[in-house]
């Protein structure tokens, strides 16, 4: 995931629930009331690009002792809605029929970041299986190609499945469909 990758930037902007473990003077604008401090244990939604850093670095100044290696980080991330047990159960029940786009439009990218952050191998295996199941479905849709304008219109309209794809799946679908279509066109006309 590159620095200049737009999808990555957009994915990093989605918010995750956090709990502050310190009182922070002057940071009230994060909670919407500028000028006031943030209280300890207050919960709020922070974009992932901010939350990820704050969950790693800790406040060693103040009451903390300087030589304490394991300083408590500023915030504690709690599990966001999209990785909740409800969603995981829905994935296990039938990944191909899940409306991933409404769960989160950058689901895979966020899942990878989340798994990397917490070393969550269990979630990893659930999502790897989900990738497989949905990919097969996706390939089926991508490989049904109409060459003439009328046919391709019909296949473009597509099934409800295409509306449930997350952004990276859409990219895969587009590239795979393009490839199948170019090949078929070459085979037929040339």
């Amino acid at each position: 995931m590159g620095y200049y990758e737009l999808e990555d930037v957009l994915a990093d902007g989605s918010e995750v629930p956090c709990k502050f473990q310190y009182s922070m003077p002057g940071l009230g604008y994060l909670a919407g009331n500028a000028g006031k401090p943030i209280e300890k244990n207050s919960k709020l939604l922070l974009p992932l690009w901010l939350a990820r850093v704050l969950a790693i670095v800790g406040g060693s100044e103040g009451e903390e002792i300087a030589d304490d290696e394991e300083a408590m980080p500023f915030v504690e991330l709690s599990r966001p809605e999209m990785f909740s047990a409800k969603v995981v159960n829905a994935i296990k029940a039938g990944a191909a029929s899940l409306d991933l786009h409404s769960v989160n439009s950058h689901f895979y990218m966020l899942a990878i970041k989340w798994i990397a952050l917490f070393g969550d191998a269990e979630l990893g295996s659930v999502i790897a299986e989900m990738v497989m199941e949905r990919s097969l479905e996706l390939n089926g849709h991508a490989s049904s190609v109409g060459v003439s304008a009328v046919e391709s219109q019909a296949s473009q309209a597509g099934s409800p499945f295409l509306l449930t794809l997350d952004e990276s799946e859409k990219e895969t679908y587009r590239r795979a469909h393009d490839s199948y279509r170019r090949t078929k066109r070459w085979m037929l006309e040339k």
């Binding site: 899942a111 990397a116 070393g119 969550d120 191998a121 790897a128 990738v131 390939n139 490839s179 170019r182």
Partner: peptide, 26 residues
């Protein structure tokens, strides 16, 4: 191979990313 390439590479790439994210520090 050529017509499969985009699909197979994208899917295997995603699987690899998930796999390496889950197993990076174990």
């Amino acid at each position: 191979v050529n017509e499969l390439r985009p699909f197979v590479l994208d899917t295997m790439d995603r699987l690899r990313e998930i796999h390496s994210a889950a197993n990076q520090d174990t």
